[in-house]
Structures are given as C-alpha cells and as structure tokens.
Write a protein that binds this DNA or RNA. Structure first.
Length: 963
RNA sequence: GCCCCCGUAGCCCAAUCGGCAGAGGCGCCGGACUUAAAAUCCGUCCAGUGUGGGUUCGAGUCCCACCGGGGGCACCA
C-alpha cells in the first residue's frame, strides 16, 4: 500500500498552492487512513490468551491500559459536536498510552435497549430493533469519520442475542445467590443459594418460624429460599408511573416525585415486582469508594444516596407494646419530650385512643372531639397528598396527638405520641423520639404544639438560636443510673448506647437511605427475565443452556400507558399480550411441564452493568469472561496502592450517571467478585467526568428561536448586539438541541475543516472537565495550526518534503525537549488544552526557522499523532517511514536539554520587581544576594533605606525587604 | 436552607511549593499577497485576576465575609 506522495485528486481554489492542507485534502487523507487502519487491523488489541491473542503471544507480558467511554445510547437524532468530546479525549489518551508502550484496550459498544429507543420506534411506527440498528449504523458512520483507534472486533450492542444471553446469565447468578452477612469477618459476601439450603438442612440456620427444615414441605422451603435471594420478587410499595406505563427505580425518580425520563408524576403503589438486594452491599459500596480514584463530587453523591447513618435503635414502652425509633443522637435521649410517628406507621391505629386524656392541650387536638377522629382525618389528608404537594406546601409543622403516651427509658417520663407527616415511613423505623432542644424540626413542632423543650447540650454563651445542633457538653442528662453531664457528644453517644444495651431498651445500629433496586419494567424493549413460574406461582430459573430468552415478535410493542395522573391504574406489560410466548412447555428436570414466563423486562441499566467485561472477551460463548483475561485487564494492581481493587484504568463519561449506572454496575461487579467470576472488586478504578459542550441560542421578539448559525454579532464599544435578518435577537446559553436551533454536527465539521481539525479544536477548547460554549468561528485556529504543521514538512507548491537532515540548533533542541517534557506531563493528566498549546508553540518556533530540522519535525509529528492522527500518519509516511505512527514510540525528553544555560532572576524590593539578572541555574543564595544588592536599580529603589531582610529563592528570585 | 465547584484580556483559556499575571487560540486593528474578496502570512492592541477584609517580605494561588454563575441534596431523625 502506498501511503506517500502524490495521488491527491484534491481540487484547490488556488493553483499556486496545490499542496496546501485544506479541508478537501484533509478529507482525502483522513478517509484514506481510516480505510488503511481498518484493512491492516492497526488497532487490533491482542489478548494474552484465547481467540484474540496475537501470534507473538506476548501481550500478557506487556503493561496494559484499559480505557472506556460511557457507551452511547444511539438516538434517532444523531450526534452533535458535544457528543464526541469524551470519545476524542479517550482516543487521544489511548493513542498516547499505546505510543508509550502500553497494550491499550479501547473499543466502543452500544447501549441499545430502553425507553427512548422504544419511544422512537413507536413514533416512527417501526420495530425497535430496526430503528435501533439503523441508529447504531448511523452513529458508527459518524464516529468512524472521527478516526477513533478502537479495536473494531470488540464492538457489540446490548441487544445482541449473544450479549443478552450473558446479561440473563448474570441475572440468574444473582437470583441463585444469597448474602451471607457473617462471611469475610462480618463484611459479608454473596454465596450460592445452595449453601443456604445446606445450612437449613443441617439446622445450622433456623427457619423463620423455628420448625425443622425437614418438617417443611417443598413449597414452604422454596418460599423461604426465595426470600433470601439477591434477586427476589416482592410485593411492596413501588414507583408506578402511569404516563410511562411502567414502574421505576428510586434512582429514576426525581426529588419532585416525577420520572427522570419524561417528567411524569410517579405514585407509590403496592405491586409485585423484581427487586435486587443492593442494600446488602451498602457498606461495601460506601467503604470501597475510598479505594478508587473518582471525582470527590461523584463519591459524595454516592455516599449521600446510600445515606449511611450510625446511631441507635431505642425502644419506648407504650400501652400497646414497644415503639422503636432510630436516632443518630442517642446522647440527647434525656431531652426527648415527645414522640412522632409517620401517619402510615403500623402502630398508629393501636395507639389512637377513644377520648382525649386528661391534660391534653388544645393545640394537640386540631379541634377534633376525639383522637380517633383527629387521627383519621389527619391520615386521610396525608394520604391524599402527593410527594409534590408535601414539597410545595412548605414546611409548616402539622400533626395530631394520638391520645397515647410512651415512656422515655432514660427519664421515665410519660411523653405524648403524635403523628405528623414530617416523619417519613420510608426512613428508619418511621418513628422518632423528638428532641426539640437539639433538632430544628422538633423545635418547630414543639413551638407549634406547646410541648416542653429541654436542652441536653450546653450551647456556647453567645448562642441565641433555637435548637442547638452543634458540639458541647451534655447537660440535664442524668438519672439514678447514668450521667452524661459534662461529656462531649461523641463519648455521650457511646455511653448512652452501652447503657441502653445493658437495660435491654436499645442498641447501636446503622441505617441507610438506600433501598433495594426495583429491577422490573413493564416495557417491551428490554431483556426478558430468564424466569418461568410453575403452578405454585413461584419463580424458577431457566437453565443456562436455554439462554438467551429472546423477545418474541409482538404485533404491538408499545406499552399500555395512561393519563399521567391516573394513579389507580395497573401496569400491563406488552409481553403479557403474547399468550403463545408466555405459556411454554419445558423440561426442567422433572419431565415436560407447562410453565408461565415472566412478562417483565429488565431496566436498560442491566446491559451497562457488565459491558466492561464483554470488551475483554467479546466472542466467549462458554463463560461470561475468561478469568485469565479479566485478571490481565482488570485485576488488582498492588503496585498502584495497597489493597487495590482493580478495575478499568480510565473511564470517561458525564456526571449524570453518578448514582444510577455507576452504583448499579459496582453492585453487579461485587456480586460477580463474591461468586469468584472476577478478580477485581470494583469495575472502574479511575473515573473522569467530562464537561459538556453547550451553545448559544437566540430568540426573536416573539420568543421564537432563530437559527443560531445565521445570527450576526456586532460590537459597538461596550455594547454587543445580535441580529437575525436585521432584527435584534436575545442571546441565551444552554444545551445544543433541535428545539433551540443551535445544533452543529460533527458532519458539518468534517466537511468544513476535517476530522483532525475538529479533534484538535475540541481538545484545545479548555480542560476536559469544564463545560464550555461551542464557537464554530474559532475552529479555524486549529486548522491554521495543522496547516502550519503541514507547511513545516511539505512544500505547498511542489509537494516536496522540505525538512533538513542536519542537526537542529541548540535553541530549537531546547524548545523541542521542553515541549516533549511538558506534553508528556499534560497528556498523562488529560490536560489536552495545554499539551496542544505547547505543540503550537513548538510549531510556531519551527515556522520561524529557514529550514525545519528533521529531528524536530519528526518529534512534533509523533507528538501530534494522538490528537490529530490522520495528518500525523500522512506526514510520518511522507517523511519516509513505513508502518503506522500509532505504534511509534512517543518522544522522550533529554534531561540535559531541559535546563537552561541561564535563568532570569527577578529582583524585588518590597515585593516589587526592580531588576532582572541573567544568572546560571546553579547560582547560590549568597551570590544572588550579592548581585542583587549591587544592582543600581535596587539601590535606587532602596533610596538609602537600610535592608531589613533578604529572601532568596535561588535561582529565580531575590526579594529585598527595606527597613 | 445546607454542601460542593467555578469567577484571570471583548471571548475560550494558561500560570509546579505562595515568587516577573500570559503559554495557546478566537476576535479586533494594522500590514503583506490579490484587480478585488476569501484563504494564507506577518505584526499590534487589550486585564492586574468578581468585591471587601486578613495572613505574608511577597497572594490569581492560603484564610474570612459577601456578590455572581453552575451542580448536588433537601423535613433522612
């Protein structure tokens, strides 16, 4: 294959520069090299073993680098210029690591199940598989033109039957597991469910009702086992979204109680659904955040979502039994002057008395003649409120007295029990001990309902607020048995917990905000559950040999949706409408029998929970991933840190998945680790959140968006005005999108500038993690850079290579090696913007020379290669090299050339620069001080004043402090 | 309301440990080339770092308060 010279059919407007690097020439070069890479398999990444091992078989000995993008969801709208930002960054990083000698694994798969794909299909009246596949091929086309160095053999889509098979297989491993909380020294570990059966059989573990295992019939046993599975069916309150026709996970519901997708109202309904026991992993999910290299912001969001809080469970005696509360402040128990239950609390009915007891204050009754009436009324009102209403109605404390009292175990006082909607059934035990002295909400409630307030922490003398939640010594906290008085908060908590444990009225405990993951959806376009039900209506796993369970073709795959606020409707899965698929005859070991399939599908998060493993071993049909491959690519790296959890070396994506995909994927990965399918404890070791590319949009006087491309800007002094068709328009800033008429696509950029220019521009706009506005007119700067680079190597008029084979001059050598050093550092830190500015600097330096030395030109070309790979290949080839620049070693700096012969030493007087000295880098403090004091400018500045002090930071600075 | 991040030139952005505010790009202006324009090339201009305090010999960088922008959480006991 001849890659060099000639063959340019490029039409250029100006005949005198036929070999100028224009967008036309870029297009020709780029597509030619893309074809070459594909044909040659330039970016095929060898595995150490197996089908994808190379002939040398030496890959396993090489250092590896596994990097990933959050894979795309192929929408019908195609890409805009914001989408490739992360892909370009990972591509440049991968190319850089490869040139540094690493075995780089980088590929791109497609996340293709899910609601938007299904909705797009419904809109266009086509099968989701068809539209999804079309969207994928369009996206592939757009991305191929970008020149990404992916291993094309390792691509796949989550909808591929071969992929679905293993998604379902992992689901069944989770289904076939339980969590043994005592394993691994109390940290807990998922174990095969058969081990649980063995423990019941051997009576090592007691059955829930105490009967011996042998005394239970088969169905009873199955029910017990099913209750312990990590994937289980439960009838519990779930998020029902009539507008979408499906239930949703907590993570998919916004704080306003609406669906994250579509923004429809969501209602709590008790429904039978699949759940994943992610709560079993709450501690490990929190603790292991300390072992991975993620942005603190994302770690904080996960910690917050999991919401671990340590405290105590305390039992208060009442006439109808014990009432348990959770508190993080057991030290304030002496200040608990009343109790509050969520209106939905199961004990409310029993606690509600017929008549108001003696001493009931007016405020407690809400004007009702009896607690029964007051409670009934309050509960009805609370039940009718949606979450949104609770939200918008502010935080005025409401509630009523139940007529009952509880006994404070510390003070022995009888304290009134209220119900109020500021206590939530979904957290803790749904009941609190109210300590108004140390809790703002309780203080408000106490004020409103005329309840006693006892401070049990001494606020500072200057504290003039109400509830005091800060640190301080305990007060008013003693009985005959125990005194906390004088103790700080932490020791007081411990003392109280010990005392409660001795008394048998409480214990230290931990609660979490995290709930189990609701895993079933009533939609068509997702993985079917590999589950059937028998005559007892209990779930049975479909054997691995029968996987994948494929989606049936259905006449109508659109889900049954309802009016968004039709809360009392029922989900109706599309798969339930295909009786011939639902009813199935199978031989599961005891002869052919009729079964009923599960008609739910998995949420689209399922596919993204394990795709990192499929990149490693994309064709494996025997196991989810070859353990040897997983160990090589993802295994723990003890040289990185002690107790390293392993995982993908670099994972780049937006921050929007902080608690959805990233939490779910960590959970699945830990289950697979517990069951010994993987050696890594975390899926993604280093996470980087890229920023977003946003864009300006313009509205006219009617508020309508006008095409941003055609808006003209004019600057008049300090005034900047924008006009469209000579009419003034108003500028806004936001996302790029059709409705805002401000979309710029990669295709536009390829046509106008070429992929390399586009890549350079995106990488040079600013730091990767910062969002910034797109500015098409600024792209030309990147084209000019590549044009100058081209001109430094190739004569624009003749096409001849013009580099000079003699050694570079010393200045050029210094500039070159400083650039190499800086670019390496910047690339390692994903600081492409500064790396590129260094390359431009070097390039500009070379431009000023009469002839460009070959050593500088070649180093520059190789350093440009990660960001602008096509032009680099072309120039590398024209410089006379065979093979791809992608595998050339990245230049190394010569340390001798990094130190200057002289440095400028700044001389300050009183912090102001007064002189500059050219000194050798080795100049000593004493020499510098002497030189500085001898300076005429310094003496002038001192103006006769004595010198109080001289600060020397050799060799760069001397500061003379006058008296 | 609480927590986190960010404010440097007309614009996008640089500035190791606190040590000369400017690397790179866009734009503007001037010049070269051109019949002209575009493209290209060369050159120039532009801020004292959101505001107010503090620490320091010295602050864009550290501390405090406030203002502006972005994000997260939000009655979680």
């Amino acid at each position: 294959m001849s890659m060099s010279q000639t063959g340019h059919s490029t039409v250029d407007q100006s005949d005198d520069v036929p070999y100028r690097y224009t967008s036309e020439m870029a297009a020709e070069i780029e597509q030619r090299w893309q074809d070459h890479w594909e044909a040659e398999g330039t970016f095929h990444t060898p595995n150490p073993v197996g089908e994808l091992a190379d002939s040398s078989g030496e890959a396993g000995a090489r250092k590896k680098y596994f990097l990933m993008d959050m894979f795309p969801y192929p929408s019908g709208a195609g890409l805009h210029v914001g989408h490739p930002l992360g892909y370009i960054a990972t591509d440049a990083t991968g190319r850089f690591r490869r040139m540094c000698g690493d075995n780089v694994l980088h590929a791109l798969a497609y996340d293709a199940f899910g609601l938007p794909a299904e909705q797009y299909a419904v809109q266009t009246g086509q099968h989701p598989r068809k539209t999804t596949e079309e969207n994928i091929s369009n996206m592939k086309r757009q991305l191929r033109r970008l020149g990404l160095a992916h291993d094309p053999r390792r691509t796949f889509a989550t909808i591929d039957p071969e992929y679905v098979r293993w998604t379902q297989w992992i689901f069944l491993r989770i289904f076939d597991s339980w969590y043994d909380p005592e394993a691994d020294g109390g940290r807990g570990r998922a174990r095969p469910i058969t081990e649980l059966v063995t423990r019941f059989e051997s009576s090592e573990r007691a059955t829930p009702d105490g009967r011996p295992w042998a005394a239970l019939d088969a169905v009873e046993r199955r029910r017990i086992i099913d209750d312990h599975r990590l994937a289980y069916v439960s009838e519990s309150p779930v998020n029902w979204c009539p507008g979408l026709g499906t239930v949703l996970a907590n993570e998919e519901v916004t704080a306003e109680g609406r669906s994250e997708r579509g923004n429809f109202p969501v209602f709590k309904r008790r429904l039978r659904q699949w759940m994943m026991r992610i709560t079993a992993y709450a501690d490990r999910l929190v603790d292991d955040l300390d072992r991975i290299d993620w942005p603190e912001k994302v770690k904080a969001m996960q910690r917050n979502w999991i919401g671990r809080s340590e405290g105590a469970a305390i039992r208060f005696a009442t006439d109808v039994g014990e009432l348990e509360v959770f508190t993080t402040r057991p030290d304030t128990l002496f200040g608990a002057t009343f109790m509050v239950l969520a209106p939905e609390h199961p004990l409310v009915e029993a606690l509600t008395t017929e008549a108001w007891p003696e001493g009931t204050r007016d405020a407690w009754t809400a004007g009702h003649t009896s607690p029964t009436e007051a409670v009934a009324q309050y509960r009805a009102t609370a039940a009718a409120k949606t979450d949104i209403e609770r939200q918008t109605e502010g935080r005025d404390k409401t509630g009523v007295f139940t007529g009952s009292f509880a006994t404070n175990p510390a003070t022995g006082a009888r304290i009134p029990v209220f119900i109020a909607d500021y206590v939530l059934m979904g957290y803790g035990t749904g009941a609190i001990m109210a300590v108004p002295g140390q809790d703002e909400r309780d203080w408000e409630f106490a004020e409103r309902f005329d309840l006693p307030i006892v401070r049990t922490v001494q606020p500072p003398a200057d504290f003039d607020g109400k509830a005091y939640v800060g640190a301080g010594p305990a007060i008013n906290s003693a009985n005959d048995d125990i005194s906390l008085d004088g103790m700080d908060v932490e020791p007081a908590k411990h003392a109280m917990i010990s005392w409660l444990e001795e008394q048998g009225s409480g214990s230290g405990t931990v609660t979490y905000r995290l709930r189990d993951w609701l895993f079933s959806r009533q939609r068509y376009w997702g993985e079917p559950f590999p589950i059937v039900y028998d005559e007892h209506d209990l779930p049975i796993a479909i054997p691995a040999r029968l996987l994948p369970v494929e989606l049936p073709d259905v006449p109508d795959y659109s889900p049954k949706t309802y009016e968004p606020d039709a809360a009392d409707t029922e989900p109706e899965p599309p798969l339930a409408r295909v009786p011939e698929w639902v009813e199935v005859e199978l031989d599961l070991g005891d002869g052919p029998k009729r079964y009923r399939r599960d008609t739910n599908t998995m949420p689209n998060w399922a596919g993204s929970c394990w795709y990192h493993l499929r990149y490693l071993d994309p064709f494996n049909d025997q196991q989810v991933v070859d353990p040897e491959l997983e160990r090589y690519w993802m295994g723990p790296q003890p040289d990185r840190q002690p107790n390293d959890p392993g995982g993908v070396d670099l994972y780049v994506g937006g921050v929007e998945h902080a608690v959805l995909h990233l939490l779910y994927a960590r959970f699945w990965h830990k289950v697979l680790y517990d069951l010994d399918y993987v050696s890594s404890e975390e899926p993604y070791y280093r996470l980087f959140n890229q920023g977003y590319i946003q864009a300006y949009a313009y509205t006219d006087s009617r508020g309508q968006y006008v095409p941003a491309e055609e808006v003209e800007e004019s600057v008049d002094g300090a005034e900047t005005t924008y006009t469209y068709n000579n009419q003034p328009v108003r500028r806004e800033y936001g996302k790029m999108g059709k409705s805002l008429k401000n979309v710029v696509t990669p295709d536009d950029m390829y046509a106008a500038y070429g992929a390399d220019t586009f890549r350079v521009y995106e990488m040079s706009m600013g730091p990767l993690d910062v969002s910034r506005p797109w500015e098409t007119r600024a792209v030309v700067g990147s084209l000019r850079f590549l044009q100058r680079l081209w001109r430094n190597v190739v004569d624009e008029h003749t096409g001849e290579v013009v580099v000079d084979d003699d050694d570079a001059d010393i200045t050029t050598k210094r500039v070159l090696h400083r650039t190499i050093d800086a670019v390496r550092t910047d690339m390692n830190g994903l600081r492409f913007n500064t790396a590129i500015s260094r390359l431009i600097e070097l390039n500009n330096h070379l431009t000023k020379l009469d002839r460009v030395p070959r050593e500088a030109a070649e180093a520059l070309v190789t350093m440009v290669a990660p960001v602008a790979p096509h032009i680099a290949e072309e120039l590398w080839s024209r410089l006379g090299h065979g093979g791809s620049v992608a595998h050339v070693t990245f230049p190394e700096p010569d340390p001798a050339l990094l130190v200057d012969e002289t440095v400028t030493c700044v001389v300050q007087v009183g912090g102001k620069v007064r002189d500059r000295l050219e000194v050798p880098p080795s100049a000593s403090d004493a020499e510098l001080e002497e030189l500085a004091l001898a300076s005429a400018a310094v003496q002038r500045a001192l103006d006769g004043r004595a010198v109080r002090k001289v600060i020397v930071r050799a060799p760069k600075l001397v500061n003379i402090v006058p008296a």
